[in-house]
């Protein structure tokens, strides 16, 4: 490999922020020091994701549905039928909205069924499509049994199936985005699932705490508060592990603002739920709503970070250069 980084090159090293007029939100333009990354006119190496707002919203609704099904089963086994029913309704709502969002986001929505003609274990999207399909079916059956009393045997089994499928449903979306070449997603592949699981737990707990009378909602509140706190911690841990450079897209601009907003909402929501949610339904509803909003913002932040990370070539080139340097070093050493 060439070692001639002598500065004799005519080609200036751009940062895409400078080139594409994509300032970091405060109108600032960041210069990348010349020695840092070489590139082609600051143009992106990767393409930006095609996914729009439906996708981060689906991460939220899918997570909410998945964890709610688990909460419902646990409540049933614990003899808390009130909580079980409300959590089931949350699961049903999430399972109903999710496919709509997913199909809406397709470039050719009328061809959604093409995904139902194959099963590809190498594609998290294919795996997720099937998980969501079966989850939706079993949740409908479980709720039908619960509300109408029909299909007693099948309804019971469906409750279990929903709870079980809810676990992958709440976490596979992390694998979905990690299984891409987008640096801030792929490099965070070890930590994203926990963030998503925690966020799902917080959402399910919060939704059930809103829907259930306070006397029966203790477990929901505990799940909401625990999930929200774990979510905050898991995001920070993820950023720490990514390192200063790759954590940048999560911390600057739009994604950074979303993250801060999420922390404020979830933090306050958790405090309200923990200290007042037990006594007052109003407080439980307010706290739950704040936690839900915080979870949406966190999904948003993670989704948004993928864009600057694909757009600016330095996020692609730098880690790869470092990898090459390490490998070269290992060869020589």
């Amino acid at each position: 490999m060439s070692e001639s980084r002598s500065g004799r090159y005519y080609q200036p090293v751009h940062s895409a922020t400078q080139q594409g007029g994509q300032p970091d939100g405060r109108g600032q333009v960041r210069e990348v020091p010349e020695e840092e990354v070489r590139n082609y006119y600051g143009r992106p190496v990767l393409k930006e994701p095609t996914w729009e707002w439906q996708i981060p919203l689906y991460f939220f609704t899918g997570g909410l549905a998945g964890a709610s099904a688990g909460l419902a089963l646990a409540a049933r086994l614990g003899g808390n039928d009130m909580l079980a029913r409300r959590a089931h309704l949350a699961a049903l709502a999430g399972a109903g909205v999710s496919p709509v969002l997913l199909i809406w986001d397709l470039g050719r929505p009328e061809r959604f069924y093409e995904m139902l003609r194959v099963f590809k274990p190498t594609s998290p999207m294919s795996v997720g499509t099937w998980v969501l399909s079966f989850f939706g079916t079993s949740t409908v059956l479980a709720v039908a049994h619960d509300l109408l009393g029909v299909l007693p045997r099948l309804g019971r089994i469906s409750e279990g199936v929903s709870a079980l499928l809810g676990l992958p449903l709440a976490t596979y979306t992390a694998v979905l985005i990690a299984d891409t070449s987008v640096p801030v997603w792929h490099e965070a592949r070890r930590d994203l699932p926990l963030v998503f699981a925690a966020s799902s737990a917080a959402s399910a707990g919060a939704a059930a705490a809103i829907l259930t009378p306070v006397g029966d909602a203790g477990p929901a509140r505990r799940l909401a508060v625990g999930g929200a706190l774990l979510e905050l911690g898991a995001v920070e841990f993820m950023k720490r592990r990514l390192g200063k450079f790759l954590a940048e897209p999560y911390e600057e601009g739009k994604p950074g603002r979303s993250d801060k907003l999420s922390k404020a909402l979830s933090g306050i929501g958790a405090a309200v739920t923990a200290f007042a949610g037990r006594k007052s339904r109003t407080a439980a509803v307010a706290g739950g709503a704040l936690i839900l909003a915080g979870a949406v913002c966190e999904r948003w932040s993670i989704y948004e970070a993928g864009f600057p990370s694909s757009r600016d070539p330095k996020y692609t080139v730098m880690p790869q250069r470092e990898r090459l340097r390490d490998r070269d070093g290992a060869h020589r050493g």
Binding site: A67, G70, L71, A74, L167, P168, A170, T171, Y172, A174, V175, R189, R190, D191, L192, P193, L194, F196, A197, S200, A201, A204, G205, P219, A220, R222, L223, G226, G227, L230
Partner: peptide, 16 residues
């Protein structure tokens, strides 16, 4: 990590 996170989620729900 997704399998670990899913197990953690199950444990968290039970713990609640």
């Amino acid at each position: 990590p997704a399998a670990v996170a899913a197990s953690a989620l199950a444990a968290g729900v039970a713990a609640a």
